[in-house]
């Protein structure tokens, strides 16, 4: 009887910001249909090692006693419909639902290199939830490879330089990108919500598009050199200020994601971020949602002589 429940799994490989993500899902599922934003990131299996492996089997979500210690149910970055739990050797990510049958859960090793997702494949929101859980995995695994998943809207200027706009939800990151698209020639949206920044061995910072982009379907498998970050704040005027040292770190830190109960991951993030803010330019823009705001940040990065902070 038990043999009948064993389903065959198929391996799928994706490459995001140079990291290979391996999914093992039941062969009967059409993954391109479930995860359309990932299609452009698919790779044939190389001999490369997978940075993270995520397995899905349709199984009951383990009961509440097995989740562990509640660590968080609020996050400025992740939203509030989920919870993180910690166990001795695992982290549990739960997507809450009033109806127990509609809950989704992921159990991961503490370094997030191996995860297992539990949920129901007939759930209409499966794609959305799996994509979100994969973002949690990628964000944490990436930290171990000098990658930081950031909450930002990012434009690519002249096909070669990226500027990432940061800010609390509702500040107008997407709006500011859109103003660049409208008023600054040779500008393209690279990602509207969750790009990845990678600090290369030679010290260069590269920003990558990802399969995650918030409400805007902009899933570009491409990258440009990161010129800098701008933290936005709504104001009755447009005013741009450069930030250095501690202030530049403070400007970027709230937009980065690390599970802060894991000291290793958090320290990896802070290490990379400390080096990153010395490599790129960090500014602060008080702004209106108008064309002049886009010109102000454009001029700061590409017209004035920019000090490198080094």
């Amino acid at each position: 009887m038990e043999a009948n429940t064993v389903l065959e799994l198929t391996n799928h490989y994706y490459e995001i910001a140079g990291l290979q993500l391996e999914l093992r899902f039941p062969s009967a599922l059409n993954l391109d249909h479930i995860l359309p934003s990932f299609v452009g990131f698919r790779v044939e299996h190389s001999n490369k090692t997978s940075a993270a492996v995520v397995t899905f089997r349709e199984e009951e979500v383990p009961s509440e006693e097995e989740w562990g210690t509640l660590r968080s149910d609020i996050s400025l970055v992740w939203g509030d419909n989920f919870r993180f739990y910690e166990q001795k050797d695992a982290f549990v990510t739960l997507i809450k639902h009033k109806i127990k049958d509609k809950q989704w859960m992921m159990k991961s090793t503490k370094d997030f290199r191996e995860s297992r997702i539990y949920g129901k494949a007939d759930d209409l929101r499966m794609g959305e939830f799996v994509s979100w859980l994969l973002m949690v995995v990628f964000g944490q695994v990436g930290l171990q490879h000098r990658l930081i998943l950031i909450h930002a809207s990012v434009i690519a200027y002249q096909q070669k330089q990226g500027v990432a706009f940061l800010g609390k939800s509702g500040t107008g990151k997407s709006t500011h990108s859109r103003l660049w698209l409208q008023h600054i020639p040779d500008t393209e949206l690279l990602n509207d919500d969750n790009p990845v920044v990678r600090l290369e061995e030679d010290g260069r910072a590269i920003i990558y598009g990802t399969p995650w982009s918030g409400k805007t379907p902009c899933y570009k498998n491409k990258c440009v050199e990161l010129k800098g970050f701008v933290r936005l704040e709504q104001a009755p005027l447009n005013r741009f200020t450069w930030k250095k040292g501690m202030e530049s770190l403070v400007a970027v830190l709230p937009s980065c994601t690390a599970l802060r109960w894991n000291k290793d991951l958090f320290n990896a993030m802070t290490d990379t971020l400390s080096q990153l803010v010395e490599q790129v330019n960090v500014g602060y823009l008080e702004c209106l949602p108008d064309a002049d705001a886009a010109r102000t940040s454009h001029n700061a990065f590409f017209e004035e002589k920019v000090e490198t902070g080094l």
Binding site: S248, F266, S274, E278
Partner: peptide, 23 residues
């Protein structure tokens, strides 16, 4: 303890429910 530019800093992850780190 880390040096960022000319500043010496320590980032202190909050242990509470809300994700607000101190520097």
């Amino acid at each position: 303890l880390r040096k960022v530019g000319d500043d010496y800093i320590m980032v202190d992850p909050s242990q509470g429910m809300v994700d607000l780190s101190k520097v």
